[in-house]
Write a protein that binds this DNA or RNA. Sequence first.
DNA 1: TGGCGGCTAGAACGAACGCTCTATTTAGGG
DNA 2: CCCTAAATAGAGCGTTCGTTCTAGCCGCCA
Lengths: 199, 199
Amino acid sequence: MDQTSTRDRIVIAASRLIQRQGYVGTGIKQIAKEAQATLGSVYHFFPDGKEAVGVAAIKHGDQEFAAVLREALDSEQDPSAAVAACTRQLADSLRESGWIDGCPVTAAALETLGTDSEIQRACAAALRNWERLVYDKLLHSGLRAEDARDLATTIISTLEGAEVTAQVNRSEEPLWAAGRQLARLVGTYEVAPSVAQTP
Amino acid sequence: MDQTSTRDRIVIAASRLIQRQGYVGTGIKQIAKEAQATLGSVYHFFPDGKEAVGVAAIKHGDQEFAAVLREALDSEQDPSAAVAACTRQLADSLRESGWIDGCPVTAAALETLGTDSEIQRACAAALRNWERLVYDKLLHSGLRAEDARDLATTIISTLEGAEVTAQVNRSEEPLWAAGRQLARLVGTYEVAPSVAQTP
DNA sequence: TGGCGGCTAGAACGAACGCTCTATTTAGGG
DNA sequence: CCCTAAATAGAGCGTTCGTTCTAGCCGCCA
């Protein structure tokens, strides 16, 4: 039997499918089949229908991506190296997936832009969440708060964009380039010496 | 009567709709209605069906976006200022459209990632096209060729990502932040003095 | 005036969509 | 052992999808 619960399998399958083909491009029946569940089970756990499944899937992708990001950021003390580690991590998993498993929320976010749906809000929350992770890392590295804000926003934007570019071109190059340039950019900010991480 | 031809109206309407709600989320009948054409007209000009319309729409968006980019890049001699001008231009038109008219190809590109369709190729070509514009600008500003390559790739990625972030958050801030950081990044590259633009 | 493409117009088809509904199976406490 | 609620199973609803098809409209050359 399966270790994971039916509900979890549905959410995970939905998250992966939405990540790969978008929200509108993913059908409830396809989710059920992929999760090895039936339509009845899906509507049992999510009586509110497709949108509820989508929201749960987005939130799952949010946390999953946040974990990857956090691990990469923690792998290096120097903030420049940490950001570069992020791009390396993204490039690796992107190549391994055959260039299809990119950011888990971008596609859904773009499709539901004008709709002010719950999905839209979940995507916005995910972006803010990831930005916060980078922001905290920069702050703990001794950057000034306003610099860290601006930088964190830009770093997330660049990661987002570089991932898309890498997927479209089926190449790791855009992520490598982003890693090099972001590291250089972060390096231009002086770290307050007294606040530098204690060994 | 309408000045523009029926075919052009179809392409323009398709481009805008795909930009806003993606390729799968946009129906042929919706395109026809938006273009004030009939289904018969659409299939008359595009006998190969929806994908052919989509490809034409993507190519149209490609050129449209390239024109905006080119104008912004040419508005300033200094490459840092030119890149900042791009982010300002994007922020302006994004706000004016109510945060719905972003990059005309990202949504379609993400939806068709695994499909190796003609649409996919058109999106990849668009990204390469825009990257080329930035690359030429940087090269003419005296940057070394390899630096210009890396930078151009990253600048396009960041613009792409910042646009998405701005749309999701319904705020110009991500684009402003990207403008500031990209200008700073470009500024870290020394311009070969002899090649600097002749007045 | 007659005919002939270029274009417009929309009815109709099979497939797939999200969703509802009723049955059936499973698990646990009296 | 039975009863109840949770979970599974899938047929079928109305709608919309992309596409096909035929019929009609228009302007041009003969």
